[in-house]
């Protein structure tokens, strides 16, 4: 069932006036995500933009108990909280980890993989702003190719990004979803659905970052939507190994018309050195990928 904005719980679990940058899409995602997780939740947060958003001691922006942990240990810390809840006889409390893309796809991957293999019961959220943003915009495993970062300063990143949801799905966990801060209701529904499953549930959230990507703060949602409407970033879920598109990406399947990826890339200064040929290559990859989706969707419908 799709949640509408009228159905969202009114209780806010993140206070306004937090320390995130102007226009940060993480605030949107965190607000909706915490509503989905609910008040009976323990959070784990490694060093990341979220550490900054949550505030400086002794003031916290979050109304949920939150454990700040070392960079590599997010998933293991979530396991530790679960173990403590179990041995102290507390039930009905969710455990959720919120890590950035570096904390997930780079330094945090080993512990996350181990937790999946053990089947530990928590939600792991990767909010992906495509780089180490609060430390000054360095490249991470999910930084897209050609993006200029502090350590790919002139030519942009040479390598394509990791597909983290696919890596997570390869663990055979029951629920993997990709969503975006530009679609908070899609995000909300996915976290809600994740809570109905056991084991590690993985939620990947695309988070447009004004200072890191180079766009005006007012365009965070616009950029998030463009990423989806160009077909570059996809909203989907992999539920018990079955992949299906959701929300705006599902609509793309129906409309069969993608916006040119140039609209998205040219709106960000991090792609200012990308050549026309490189851009065309990216457009070709997206077009081919979506033609594949259209084709398999036709085949599926034809088979019915």
């Amino acid at each position: 069932m799709k949640t509408t904005i009228l159905d969202l719980p009114e209780e806010e679990l993140i206070e306004p006036g937090n320390r995130a940058c102007a226009g940060c899409a993480l605030g949107i995602a965190y607000r909706a995500g915490l509503k989905a997780l609910g008040r009976d939740t323990l959070l784990v947060v490694p060093p990341s933009c979220l550490t900054v958003l949550q505030g400086l001691y002794p003031i916290a922006a979050t109304k949920l108990p939150s454990l700040n942990v070392t960079f590599a240990s997010t998933a293991s810390a979530a396991t530790g909280l679960l173990a403590a809840l179990k041995v102290t006889g507390r039930t009905g409390v969710n455990v959720a980890a919120w890590a950035g893309d570096g904390g997930t796809s780079d330094i945090g991957l080993q512990a996350l993989s181990a937790a999946c293999e053990r089947g530990d019961n928590f939600v792991f959220v990767c909010y992906d702003n495509e780089g180490y943003m609060n430390t000054g915009v360095q490249r991470s495993g999910t930084t897209p190719q050609w993006a200029i970062t502090a350590n790919t300063p002139l030519k942009g990143k040479m390598q394509p990004n990791k597909n983290v949801p696919a890596i997570m799905a390869a663990h055979g966990i029951d629920y993997v979803a990709a969503t975006s801060a530009a679609y908070p209701l899609d995000l909300y529904d996915k976290i809600k659905k994740a809570l109905t499953y056991g084991g590690v549930k993985y939620i990947h959230i695309h988070i447009p970052c004004p200072p890191g990507w180079g766009f005006e703060p007012r365009y965070a949602v616009k950029l998030g939507k463009l990423a989806v409407e160009t077909g570059l970033y996809e909203l989907y879920e992999i539920e018990k190994s079955q992949l299906r598109h959701t929300g705006a990406s599902l609509k793309l399947m129906e409309k069969r018309r993608l916006l040119p990826v140039e609209n998205y890339l040219r709106a960000q200064s991090r792609f200012k050195t990308i050549s026309d040929a490189e851009m065309e290559k990216i457009q070709d990859q997206i077009t081919r990928k979506w033609e594949g989706y259209f084709k398999s969707s036709e085949e599926a419908q034809g088979g019915e």
Partner: peptide, 26 residues
């Protein structure tokens, strides 16, 4: 007790740290 086999010592202590933060003798 809960015995958690981990993939590294870093995680072993991560689990103990979190479990103790939530009130368990670890």
């Amino acid at each position: 007790a809960e015995y958690i086999p981990v993939e590294s010592e870093h995680s072993a202590l991560a689990i103990c740290i979190a479990a103790a933060s939530a009130g368990a003798r670890s």
